[in-house]
C-alpha cells in the first residue's frame, strides 16, 4: 500500500520546488564535470532527476545542493553517486529476437572477414558480451574475433571481467538463449558453484574489458561491429548525435551498428548515414560514402 510518509521526497512537492531543483541539478552536473571530469550534462533530465531523488531519499538529504556539497568533498560518496547514475539493468540474450536476427543477418557477413573487431559500448556487468561471445563461438568466429567491452563504471567492469553471475537468473537466460537460436545448452558454457555460475574462460579470452566514457573519450579502434544496446535512451538528442558520430568514425566501411530494440536513428542526424539491415531489430550498416 502506498503511503505519503518516508518516500515523499521522491516527488518534489511543488512546481516551485521543482523549478529550484532544476537549477540545482544543472549546478550539480557542472560541479561533477569540473571536479571529476564525468560529464552527465546531456543525459536525459527525467532519468537523472529520478535517480538523484532516490539518492536524496536513501541518504536522508533534503536538497540537491546538500548532495552537491557531499559529492564535492567526499570522493567515496561520489563513487556511490556514479554508481547511482550508471545503467546496470541487463540480461543475457536480452531480446532473443534481436540475437536471432543478428545470427541470421550479420554473422554471414562477418564470416567473410579474416579478423573481426567488435566494440561493445556500455557493456555494464557483461551479460550481453558473453551472449555475443557464445554466438560467435557457435559460429566458429570467436577465435578470430577481438572484442573490446567498455563501460564508464569500473566496478561493473570488474564483474564483467570475472564472468560470475547469480544462478537464479539462469532459467531465464537459458530460455532466452534457446529463443535466440542457441545451438546447444547454455549450461555448456558455465560451471555452477554455491548459487553462482562462472562462465568459461575460453569465452573471455579475446575480450578486453576497458574503462571508456562515451561522452568524453574518443575513438580508440576501428571496428567491424558496434553493440550499444539501451544506452542511447539515457542521453538527450545532442549527446545521442555526438555518440553516433563517434560510432560512425569508429566503424570500418559497411560496419554494423546494433542498438536496443526501442532505440533508433529516426530522430537523429545519422538516419541517412546508415542503412537498416533489420529495421525492427535495429541492426544497421554504415553506408559507404566515397570521399
Amino acid at each position: 500500500m502506498p503511503s505519503e510518509t518516508k518516500n515523499d521526497r521522491i516527488f518534489p512537492v511543488s512546481p516551485e520546488k521543482n523549478d529550484t531543483q532544476n537549477i540545482e541539478l544543472d549546478l550539480l552536473l557542472q560541479a561533477v564535470f569540473l571536479k571529476y571530469g564525468y560529464d552527465f550534462r546531456n543525459y536525459s533530465k527525467a532519468h537523472l532527476k529520478r535517480r538523484i531523488n532516490q539518492r536524496l531519499n536513501i541518504s536522508n538529504l533534503e536538497t540537491i545542493s546538500e548532495l552537491q556539497n557531499k559529492i564535492l568533498w567526499d570522493k567515496e560518496f561520489f563513487r556511490l553517486f556514479l554508481k547511482d547514475l550508471s545503467i546496470n539493468v541487463t540480461e543475457m540474450f536480452r531480446d532473443p529476437d534481436f540475437y536471432a536476427a543478428f545470427r541470421e543477418k550479420v554473422v554471414s557477413v562477418l564470416k567473410t572477414y579474416a579478423h573481426i573487431k567488435v566494440w561493445h559500448a556500455g557493456c555494464a556487468t557483461g551479460e550481453e558480451v558473453y551472449s555475443l561471445a557464445i554466438i560467435l563461438k557457435e559460429e566458429n568466429l570467436l577465435a578470430r574475433t577481438q572484442i573490446y567491452a567498455t563501460d564508464i563504471n569500473k566496478s561493473v567492469l570488474e564483474t564483467a571481467k570475472q564472468g560470475i553471475y547469480s544462478k537464479k537468473e539462469m532459467e531465464l537466460y537459458e530460455r532466452n538463449y534457446k529463443e535466440a537460436g542457441g545451438k546447444g545448452e547454455l549450461s555448456n558454457y558455465y560451471t555452477s558453484k554455491y548459487g553462482s555460475v562462472l562462465f568459461d574462460k575460453s569465452l573471455s579470452k579475446n575480450i578486453v574489458f576497458a574503462d571508456h566514457n562515451l561522452v568524453t573519450d574518443g575513438v580508440f579502434a576501428e571496428v567491424h561491429l558496434i553493440f550499444c544496446r539501451n544506452v542511447l535512451i539515457y542521453f538527450d538528442k545532442l549527446l545521442q548525435n555526438k555518440v553516433l558520430g563517434l560510432f560512425s568514425d569508429s566503424l570500418a566501411k559497411r560496419g554494423f551498428l546494433c542498438l536496443g530494440t526501442k532505440e533508433s536513428l529516426k530522430f537523429t542526424d545519422y538516419e541517412n548515414k546508415f542503412q537498416a539491415v533489420d529495421k525492427k531489430m535495429r541492426i544497421y550498416k554504415k553506408l559507404y560514402i566515397p570521399k
Partner: peptide, 21 residues
C-alpha cells in the same frame, strides 16, 4: 509506453525511455 520500458516525459515535451529496474 512500449512493453518492458519505463516511459518518461522530458522538459522539452519529448519522450525518453528507460530500462531501469
Amino acid at each position: 509506453a512500449p512493453p518492458n520500458y519505463h516511459l518518461q516525459v522530458e522538459d522539452d515535451y519529448s519522450f525518453s525511455l528507460s530500462t531501469d529496474k
